[in-house]
Amino acid sequence: MNLAFDLLLILALSWSAWRSLATPDLTRAVVMFIVFGLLMALAWARLGAPDIALAEAAIGAGLTGALLLDALGALQARRGEKKEDA
């Protein structure tokens, strides 16, 4: 049972990492990055490192994800301005 869970976790981690790097849509990439962070926190918990799991969930997935979404919003706003100028 545990082995099956770990294998699924490894698959999901690799898949979300690959999707967040390879997808051309930036919004989707950021969302996949957050998913990757949460799965990574789960992996740390499975490895018996709850301290790192807490930090990964709060900082890696939460705050970094919020920062990336914020940066994305700013980029899109800037692009919108340029289109209006042209």
Binding site: A55, G62, L63
Partner: peptide, 8 residues
Amino acid sequence: QAGAVLAA
């Protein structure tokens, strides 16, 4: 961790 939760 506590600081990160406050920041969130």
